[in-house]
Amino acid sequence: MQPQPTLDQLQVFLTVVEKGSFSAASRALNRTQSVVSYTIANLEAQLRVELFSRSGTKRPQLTDAGRSILEDARRLLGDLDLMRARVRALSDGLEAELYVAMSGIVPSDIVVDVLHAFREHYPTVSLSVTVGSLGIVMDAVINGTAIIGFGGAMPNDQIIFERIGQSGMIPVAASDHPLGVLGRPLTLSDVRDETQLVVYDASRLTTGRDFNVFSLKTWRVSDNATKHLFIRGGLGWGGLPASLVKDDLVTGRLVQLQFPLFDQREYPIYAIRNVANPLGPAARWLASEIQARLSREAGNIASS
């Protein structure tokens, strides 16, 4: 069996490259220069390549092989650092992986901003996100496939709800849709024969319960992203989170329908967890950050 390069040898090699000389590397590693030189010579013998060109220059220069192996050494040592950080985090009670269920009523721009910050704050925690309707979120938290969920609330003895903010739902249509061009308050007879796009609940938890459905003709889709796409394409009208359509309303691609029967009250957003599954540090941080961003957005809207 051929001798294998050690992590120590790779660390010495990387230090020589970063410090620019064997003598500087020896000082940084607190080893004699002869030990550093011996370590590099052994590494070259094991790899059967010359890593440094030592002739005709005062400073060791990487060979083509050395430059190629440098990237591998950096990656291997970086992976080792990540593993050490993950082990330290696990010993402190930090989750190795966080499973989250997210309702479409949570503003998508807030979700993206918080997850950017999450990646910086918890680089060792893997993230798995399920996005769906209220029932999907509830189902995931109840059966344990999500440790925390964010969305609306339905009474359930297994679930703890903590209100963290609110979000608005408004009726919209494409600017050239028959309802979009009326330019007046709509009545039930106006919308009754126009196709309404509705998000269905694959979990069956809300079977038989439709919210803000007024048309006799409905098309059902699995999520708000598809619903948004179809409404922008003029395939029907429907309610969407205000945060999702704000840019379309500014550009005129969509219009907000004046439909008094549509319930446009603010919808509460909750952090949802199973009573049997206490939250770890990363989950608690995520809930706190989403709550802070929702509060900040509400303040900005109130002051505008």
Rank of each mutant, 00 (worst) to 15 (best):
L76K: 10
G78D: 07
D79M: 15
M83S: 15
R84I: 11
A85W: 00
A85E: 14
R88G: 07
R88Q: 14
A89L: 05
L90S: 13
L90I: 07
E95Y: 03
E97K: 14
Y99L: 12
V100R: 00
V100A: 00
V100E: 02
M102Y: 02
M102R: 09
S103P: 11
G104R: 02
I105P: 00
V106G: 03
D109G: 12
L115K: 05
L115W: 07
A117W: 04
F118Q: 01
R119E: 13
R119T: 13
E120G: 10
H121M: 10
H121Y: 08
H121F: 08
Y122C: 00
P123M: 01
T124A: 06
T124I: 10
S128N: 09
S128R: 11
V129S: 01
V131W: 06
V131R: 09
G132M: 04
L134I: 10
L134Q: 08
I136W: 01
V137N: 05
V137W: 02
V137A: 03
D139H: 14
A140T: 00
V141S: 02
N143E: 15
N143P: 05
G144A: 01
G144C: 02
T145L: 09
A146H: 06
A146S: 14
A146E: 06
A146Q: 05
I147F: 08
G149T: 04
G149Y: 04
F150E: 01
G152E: 10
G152V: 04
G152I: 03
M154L: 15
M154H: 12
P155F: 09
P155T: 09
N156H: 15
Q158C: 10
I160L: 14
I160M: 13
F161P: 05
R163A: 11
I164C: 04
I164D: 02
Q166I: 11
S167R: 11
G168D: 15
G168E: 12
M169D: 08
I170G: 06
V172F: 08
A174P: 03
S175K: 10
P178G: 09
P178T: 08
P185I: 00
L186G: 06
T187S: 15
D190W: 01
